[in-house]
Design a protein around this nucleic acid. Structure first.
Length: 261
DNA sequence: TGCATATGAGTAA
DNA sequence: TACTCCTATGCAA
């Protein structure tokens, strides 16, 4: 699940359940030392930055969470079941318990640590004041492929492997197109689409890039154009799976021809 | 029971 | 480029 939309959604949901509450914080697994310090403090803010989540506990500190590939939050209505042995952090308020399992990172961060995190992250399509110009400058001077640049969190924060494949398909760019050949118009198209699709992901709580009507629940194999598919949803051509930036890269060679002209 | 798999990313070489 | 960490799940044996 965890691309940028997941974290932004979590920031909203956690805020709805916990904001302004005194929170019982614990680490059943024992691997989050910060729990002791935060236990009994009030949650004063939640924020997602790319694929990172920040939970503010006033002066007590900020929890920085990165879910990685496996991390998950579980929301439990009371009475909550006993935590698993793998529960890194448990947050409890009178009505709800939220359990965090399997994150790559769950740590207490100083103000300086938070600044450093922001500085190493690029433009988040879901952030209102995202620095689009910086992303454009980096991208237009890059010698790497557009697919590699899209996954680089210091350029675009929040785009993951699914969104990368779907975005490139929708703007009809071959993954190996050198980033520097995009041109501003194509970049703007990509950015606008990223904002639109990530926002849809926050609303729907999952990645859906194929347009659909109303509230009808889209079947999993109908939600995406190329990612994880054998046939292109757009034209039916066989989807190719290559590797780019050490991750599987799904594309349709017919819809996304390599254009070096 | 054990293995492969997954939407991530840091580090060593 | 390869290896490492983090966990749950589904399927084969």
């Amino acid at each position: 699940m965890p691309e940028g939309h997941t974290l932004h959604r979590l920031a909203l949901d956690l805020s709805r359940d916990l904001l302004g509450n005194v929170v019982a914080v614990s680490s059943p697994q024992g691997r989050f030392d910060g729990a002791t310090r935060l236990d009994g403090c009030k949650l004063t803010g939640t924020e997602a930055v790319g694929k990172h989540l920040l939970l503010r506990f006033g002066r007590a500190g900020v929890v920085h969470i990165h879910l990685g590939l496996f991390g998950r939050f579980y929301r439990r209505r009371h009475p909550a079941p006993l935590p698993r042995s793998t529960t890194r952090m448990r947050l409890t308020v009178p009505d709800w318990t939220w359990d965090l399992v399997g994150p790559t990172r769950c740590e207490l961060l100083s103000a300086r640590g938070v600044r450093a995190l922001r500085e190493r992250l690029g433009a988040d399509p879901l952030a209102p004041g995202a620095n689009v110009e910086a992303a454009w400058q980096t991208l237009s001077r890059s010698h790497r492929s557009i697919a590699a640049v899209l996954l680089d969190q210091s350029v675009f924060a929040g785009i993951g492997n699914v969104y990368r494949a779907e975005l490139l398909h929708l703007v009809r760019l071959h993954p190996e197109t050198p980033a520097s050949r995009l041109g501003r118009a194509k970049f703007d198209e990509l950015w606008a689409l990223a904002r639109q699709l990530l926002a849809a992901g926050v609303r729907e709580k999952r990645i859906v890039t194929v347009p659909h009507e109303g509230r009808r629940r889209v079947r999993r194999d109908e939600a995406l154009h190329v990612y994880g598919r054998t046939a292109c949803h757009t034209c039916g051509e066989r989807v190719t799976v290559t590797r780019n930036a050490n991750r599987p890269m799904y594309a349709c060679e017919r819809c996304q021809p390599l254009d070096l002209g």
